[in-house]
């Protein structure tokens, strides 16, 4: 058994919805069936084999090669298996991911890990805006699972996030953790303006002192033993956070304008 591999022939003109290509959706399908699947793309529905060269046979281990930023919805609603992508991808990567693992070697567009409820998303690169956020009209962002970003994330990372763990090794843009309901976001690099704007509950872990807006309250320096336990739980994750073990932090509470039960912990 070798990984089921989709190699993009040429970069498509229109955006392509790859929702149909998940391990569970392809589980009992023959190569001919897979080749005949129609993928929504603008006004057209091109067949999979017009866009990709297909090889391999193990649908539980999908590899997408030569990906471009026009490929949306990779791993949509996936419940099992693994998808590995080489190249950049479009929006909605790991949209509503429930279980399984998605690894991207490249950059992702907006709304990565949006609505994700479980599993692991590992991006070796940067992601766009609205990482782990609620899409327009939804009242909840990411609801569970783990997201690791080795590069930077755009604005609004963790907007209305409800549960789960987001670890960003690079920098994030403005409005990180805005309207966050619960969950944990760790950022190794720098943060932009209006961090935790409208944050309700949840935790933001920071390496560098952030620029804080008026309704975030300084609560002083603390030694928090639970941090040791939390970092212990990170030990097996493939991220730089696995090596961290500190529990002395400056604690800020906020957003006072919206319940104010969220906390921003900055390492000292």
């Amino acid at each position: 058994m070798s990984a089921l591999t989709f190699t993009l022939k040429t970069a498509p003109q229109q955006r392509v919805d790859l929702s149909a290509l998940t391990p569970d959706a392809l589980a009992d399908k023959s190569l001919a069936d897979i080749a005949a699947i129609e993928l929504p793309s603008g006004h057209d529905k091109p067949r999979v084999d017009t866009l990709f060269d297909i090889s391999g046979d193990d649908a539980s281990d999908i590899v997408i090669k030569n990906a471009t930023d026009r490929l949306d919805y990779i791993g949509h609603g996936m419940r099992s298996g693994r998808i590995t992508v080489h190249g950049n991808v479009g929006s909605y990567l790991a949209f509503k991911l429930r279980k399984g693992e998605i690894v991207l070697h490249g950059n992702a567009g907006d709304f990565a890990a949006s609505g994700m409820a479980g599993g692991l998303l590992h991006v070796h690169g940067n992601v766009g805006d609205f990482l782990a956020s609620a899409i327009i009209g939804e009242r909840r962002g990411m609801k569970g699972g783990t997201v690791i970003i080795t590069g930077n994330a755009g604005e609004r990372a963790g907007d209305q996030m409800r549960r789960g763990l987001v670890l960003i090794e690079g920098n994030v843009g403005s409005y990180c953790a805005s309207r966050m309901i619960a969950g944990t976001i760790g950022v190794m690099g720098t943060t932009g303006e209006y961090l935790a704007y409208g944050m309700r509950r949840g935790t933001v872990l920071l390496n560098n002192a952030p620029k804080l807006h008026a309704t975030i309250q300084d609560c002083g320096s603390h030694t928090l033993p639970f941090l040791s336990l939390m970092f212990k739980s990170f030990r097996d994750l493939p991220t730089k956070f696995a090596a961290v073990n500190r529990n002395r932090v400056q604690r800020y509470a906020g957003d006072i304008a919206n319940d104010g039960k969220g906390e921003i912990l900055v390492f000292k």
């Binding site: 929504p40 006004h43 899409i135 327009i136 009209g137 939804e138």
Partner: peptide, 14 residues
């Protein structure tokens, strides 16, 4: 307007 999720779950192609 208030329920984009209602539209997302039920698309009809031309």
């Amino acid at each position: 307007t208030m329920l984009p999720e209602d539209h997302r779950i039920d698309p009809t192609v031309h």
